[in-house]
């Protein structure tokens, strides 16, 4: 059954690529190690017909390992800067630590980052969301996280957000693969056992959640792309202390700020 999900997904991507590109050099699966990576043409049109339905593998294990909840928290997403370079605040506290609420689910739209009211278990069966936030974990709706096809790639180190004006060549897009093919939890190597998510390299942990400044390109299920950077996990002033001195401020943690902009 788990294999079925994976196979359907890969097939789906290939179908989409063929429809969009009309040739056979568009998309290929390149699973490697514990991480499944997908080399994709950036311009794949995934709006094109009928992305196949897929069942998310490893649901039971994910619910347990990620402490997924069936309680929706009334958490805010606030726009702090408008298009084209959106900035959003996300209340990702999840009810505290350890969290007692589901992730905050959202989708990227021309009007901004829109909250989607879902609990974690429902989200495993919903294509209506693109990204989920809780504490220091951000998940995309793909792979083991959800039935959609939202994938991400990290741009080269030291890439400036403003310098990304189109999808860079040579990116490797990743679906969510923080559970292995055998449904074992895959941690990110941060040392604190966090899930190895596609966006997980937005932080490191030198004693607090420090920002790397990495810029990601996210490809939505529609095939549209956006660039995304996580600005802070703590309040901006606390984040500055964390980034420079390695000291965190639990009182302001999980107050996440991101900036993002559509690229096409």
């Amino acid at each position: 059954m788990l294999w079925q999900g994976k196979k359907v997904y890969l097939l789906g991507l290939m179908v989409a690529a063929l429809v969009a590109c009309g040739d056979d050099d568009g998309t290929s699966g390149t699973g490697g190690g514990d991480m499944t990576t997908l080399d994709m043409e950036p311009a794949v049109d995934m709006d094109a017909p009928d992305l196949p339905e897929r069942t998310v593998p490893c649901q039971d294990e994910s619910i347990s390992a990620l402490d997924l909840r069936d309680t929706i928290g009334m958490r805010d997403i606030l726009e702090e800067a408008p298009a084209p370079n959106f900035e959003h605040f996300i209340d990702a506290r999840g009810g505290g630590f350890p969290p007692s609420e589901s992730y905050v689910y959202a989708r990227f739209t021309d009007e901004g980052l829109e909250r989607v009211e879902l609990d974690d278990e429902a989200a495993l069966e919903s294509t209506g969301w693109d990204i989920a936030f809780r504490r220091f974990v951000m998940r995309l709706n793909s792979g083991v996280a959800g039935p959609s096809y939202v994938v991400a790639a990290r741009t080269a180190a030291e890439t400036a957000f403003d310098d990304v004006t189109a999808v860079p060549d040579g990116l490797t897009f990743r679906e969510e693969a923080y559970m292995s093919d055998t449904c074992e939890f895959v941690s990110d190597g941060s040392g604190i056992g966090a899930p190895a998510t596609a966006l997980g390299s937005f932080w490191t942990y030198p004693g607090c959640v420090s920002m790397t400044g990495n810029v990601f390109v996210v490809q939505l299920a529609s095939g549209r792309h956006l660039k995304l950077q996580v600005l802070s996990y703590y309040s901006p002033s606390s984040q500055a202390v964390c980034d420079s001195e390695g000291r965190g401020d639990p009182a302001t943690s999980a107050n996440v700020r991101i900036r993002w902009a559509f690229l096409d």
Binding site: A65, L66, F97, P98, S100, G193, P195
Partner: peptide, 22 residues
């Protein structure tokens, strides 16, 4: 109290992320 708050979590479910009260 960390356990009493989450009796629905398996006793052998390790934390993902920082160690929590459970």
């Amino acid at each position: 109290a960390g356990f009493m708050a989450r009796p629905d979590r398996s006793l052998d479910q390790e934390p993902t992320g920082p160690v929590d009260g459970f």
